[in-house]
């Protein structure tokens, strides 16, 4: 018995193989639960030898070994806070990709908004000042009426 077109068979087999080995499918099945915590911590820490890359994303040797340290601590049952603090104690503020909102760092967070507010208030004051008319239009006085009448009279004289 013939098994039909061998190309269809081959394509179908390749497709099945491809689908089962897709990165998403493969990694999620193999990942251990602790690895999610490792990833969360590693993503929040800055690789000390890179300027703006997390430990998780960096390919540097130091970042890989830091990842190893994080992993062994997670497996040992340490809390996320304790592990983050371990690196903070050794590398300081620098190690956090996102600055903490404690201590003098609050100034960093609030500063721009305070500056924005001060700027807006200053702009408002300036706008008010610019809009205020410098010389208000003088009200019509009786003297103006007499002047107008004289003007009309003289104009008629010229015409006639």
């Amino acid at each position: 018995m013939k098994t039909g077109n061998p190309w269809i068979f081959l394509t179908g087999w390749l497709l099945a193989w491809f689908l089962t080995t897709l990165p998403g499918v493969a990694s999620e099945k193999m990942e251990e639960p602790s690895e999610a915590m490792v990833r969360t911590i590693a993503k929040s820490l800055r690789c000390a030898v890179c300027q703006n890359q997390s430990v998780y994303e960096s390919n540097s040797d130091l970042a890989k070994d830091m990842l190893g340290v994080i992993r062994s601590k997670v497996v040992a049952g340490e809390s996320e806070y304790a592990i983050r603090d371990y690196f903070f104690q050794r590398y300081g503020d620098y190690i956090y990709l996102e600055p903490t909102t404690q201590g003098s760092n609050r100034l960093l967070w609030i500063g721009p908004f305070v500056a924005l507010l001060v700027g807006a208030l200053a702009l408002l004051a300036a706008l008010k000042k610019w809009r205020r008319p410098s010389s208000p239009i003088a009200p019509v006085t009786p003297a103006d009426h007499s002047f107008k009448e004289r003007l009309q009279r003289e104009l008629k004289q010229i015409e006639s």
């Binding site: 130091l62 070994d65 050794r90």
Partner: peptide, 13 residues
């Protein structure tokens, strides 16, 4: 070899 002491001491280079 796996720089555990170095990381423990805050070494980055």
């Amino acid at each position: 070899p796996d720089q555990t002491i170095a990381i423990d001491w805050g070494v980055y280079g």
